[in-house]
Every structure is written in C-alpha cells, then in structure tokens.
C-alpha cells in the first residue's frame, strides 16, 4: 500500500491515484485518509462490510461524490481538469425502478456510446460496431430489440455493463455488479469481465462477495469504517468478513448514516433527487443479504 507524505508527480500511465482522500456526506465524515493507486490492467475488488464506505469510494473515484480533502488523478490528470470521460466506463448499481418510458436494450447500450459522439451527429459505422460488440460480450445480442423491463434482474445488470462497454473505455468502475443476481447470471457476468480483462481493461469493482468473480481478481482492497483496512492479494470471502475487518461495526455505521432530512415534507416520490438516497438504498439492500 502506498502512503505518500507529499503529492507525487502526475503519472499518465496510472488510471487511478487517490492520495489522502476524504469524503463527507452532509458534514459527516464517511471516508478518511484513503490512498488508492490502481495500475493499468489491474483487476481490483473493493470489499468490506455494509457501510464500510466501499460504494462511496467508487462514487468518489468517478467524481459523483466530491472529495472533501485529498487529491484524485485519473490517468495523471486531476479530476477537476479531467475531460477524457470516454476512457472511463461506469456501471452503477442497478436501480429497481425503471424509467417512465420504455427503452430497448439496444437504446440503453447505445447511450454508452455518447462519450465518443459529437453533438447532432448520427451514429457512425464504428458506433454501431461497438454497440453490437458490447451486446455480444455480455451475451444479449439476441435481446437487442426487447424492452429492458422484459429482462430479468441479472440480464439488466449485463445491459448496464454493455452500456459502459460500448464507449470502449480503458477503465471500468462497477458498483456491486453481482448484488441480487442469480448464479447463472453471475457466471455470465464473470465471463464478460474476463473478456474485458483479456483486452487489457483496468477494472475496479465493488463487491460484497466475489462468488464466481474470485478467480479474476488480482488485488483486494478491504474497507473498514471509511478507511482502507487491507490492500493486497485477493482474500477468500470469509476472510473479508472476519470481525477484524469491521463486520461488527456495520450496524453501528448504518445507524449513523441515517436518512438525510431537510424539512418536514413527507418523502414521497423523488426519482432523481438527492444522491445520498441512492446510498441508503444500497445499504438497505446489502443489509438483507
């Protein structure tokens, strides 16, 4: 584990370098003193108990969650100046509720191509080829014209991976890709990720349990209570959830991350509002496992 006392010179070959990163959510420190360097071609699993901050960390790395302290570089460029988003692919946690209007599998995957498309230009041949290839890798080419809502949860997760894949990024962030996915689909997912790795992609994924992904991982980072507790060769699932790695603290932490309330308005529908709600949903779901 690298713990540099001073900021190191930028290294464009390093996909991710976070130095002394901290994240607070509404004034409450969630991540503290996190150092994480991911080299090109690494397959890193961010693990840890519920509420340990692993999802927050991946969201901070994608810029969705602003750092309150520390320094984050993607491909050697500080996050504020980073514009090459076509080099980054993000697979968010699958949200239960679909959107209000039907969308086909092909359309969702095609939206992943936006990072490489100019405004008001139609899809080119290269775009269509990349979309077709992405569908092929996740094994859903035959479902391209179907509505996303007609797929099972595991297949929807694979659609989200294909969407990230369509932009042909070098660096993938996946937030709990296996959560709530049945075993056959987990195997299909692992197969897709194996192909990505063979193509030289750098992969950072958040996982509660690795399951079929275990053989692919070449480095595990275990979070505990907002800090990095372990960074090294992969661990077996039962080792990660050893009491030393903070399972005992999980309920304590979720209680702390209690709902953010701004006023006395009953919290009815608000599909696109605060991001922290997303985190809570994740915590709730993780808690049931």
């Amino acid at each position: 584990m690298t713990q540099p006392p001073d900021p190191l010179p930028a290294d464009p070959l390093l996909p991710v370098r976070l130095q002394d990163g901290a994240v607070s959510i509404e004034g409450r420190p969630v991540l503290r003193h996190v150092d994480l360097t991911v080299g090109a071609g690494d397959f890193v699993a961010l693990m840890g108990a519920n509420g340990s901050g692993k999802s927050t960390l991946v969201r901070a790395l994608t810029g969705l969650r602003p750092l309150t302290a520390g320094r984050l570089e993607l491909f050697g460029t500080p996050l504020d100046e980073f514009r090459s988003w076509e080099r980054v692919g993000y697979v968010p946690q699958r949200t239960g509720a679909g959107s209000g209007v039907p969308a086909s599998v092909w359309e969702v995957v095609a939206s992943g191509r936006l990072t490489r498309r100019r405004l008001l230009r139609p899809l080119g041949r290269a775009d269509r080829a990349a979309i077709a290839d992405a569908l092929e890798v996740v094994g859903l080419a035959d479902r391209a014209k179907d509505g996303v809502s007609s797929l099972s949860g595991g297949q929807q997760q694979r659609v989200l991976i294909a969407r990230a894949l369509a932009g042909q990024p070098e660096l993938f962030f996946l937030d709990e890709p296996t959560a709530g996915v049945d075993l056959p689909n987990q195997h299909a997912l692992a197969e897709s990720l194996r192909q990505l790795r063979e193509r030289g992609a750098t992969i950072v994924l958040v996982a509660h349990e690795l399951g079929p992904l275990a053989p692919l991982v070449d480095r595990a980072v275990v979070m505990r209570d907002g800090r990095v507790a372990y960074d090294g060769p992969p661990l077996a699932d039962h080792e990660v959830h050893h009491p030393d790695f903070g399972e005992a603290h999980s309920h304590h932490h979720t209680a702390h991350e209690h709902r953010s309330r701004h006023d006395h308005v009953p919290s009815v529908s608000a599909p696109l509002t605060a991001h922290d709600r997303h985190d809570h949903r994740h915590d709730d779901r993780g808690g049931r496992r």
Binding site: L64, W85, P92, S99, S111, L114, L119, L120, F173, H278
Partner: peptide, 22 residues
C-alpha cells in the same frame, strides 16, 4: 429530436450521464 441521444441518457440514468461527461 436532434439532442435525443443526450436527453435520453440524462433522463434515463443521471449518474451514468454525469460519468459519461455530459
């Protein structure tokens, strides 16, 4: 119609759209 790809992405999944640099 012209901005349909962008507007679709933003309306479909806001977080993904942000990471895509929109």
């Amino acid at each position: 119609l012209g901005l349909a790809p962008q507007l679709f992405a933003v309306s479909h999944d806001q977080e993904f759209a942000r990471v895509a640099g929109l």
